[in-house]
Amino acid sequence: MATLNMIVNGKEASVEVGAGDLLAHVLRDKLGLIGTKISCGEGECGACTVLVDGLSVTSCIYPALKAQGREVTTIEGLPQEGQLHPIQQAFIDVTAPQCGYCIPGMILSAKALLDENPHPTREEINEGISGNLCRCTGYYQIVEAIELAAERMAEKGGAR
């Protein structure tokens, strides 16, 4: 066992983990952050996407200890002062979630994209979520939600 110290959603977290523990399991089982979903467990679907120092990673194949000293953002960390993040709000407003299982991962991929590129084209949005599978929606409303969020964030002066 080793001690993993990281900043999770802005707060320091310290957990005992095994050398082979994967970040997704640590977040879910040790920190109770169940918004990180596991679907394939092999990097193929993006349901477990979280941000590590702002970069999107598939936490189901990401050794937890790699997050030592890093900042980890999960879906639970997006709302600010009780307010949903504009991407989350846009997902609601365009009826993007169906079953919702892929949605946290989608939203985090979208966040990574918009943080890097606040005015993406549709093609860039597609590229940005191309590592996230969804079986329910056909992706259209998800892409539209990201477009809407980008517009709204631009109006607000790039609020994150």
Binding site: G43, G46, T49, L55, S56, V57, T58, Y62, S109, A112, E127, G128, S130, G131, N132
Partner: peptide, 9 residues
């Protein structure tokens, strides 16, 4: 290679 998450790592 893969998707964005895989390329990031």
């Amino acid at each position: 290679v893969g998707g964005p998450q895989i390329r990031n790592v």
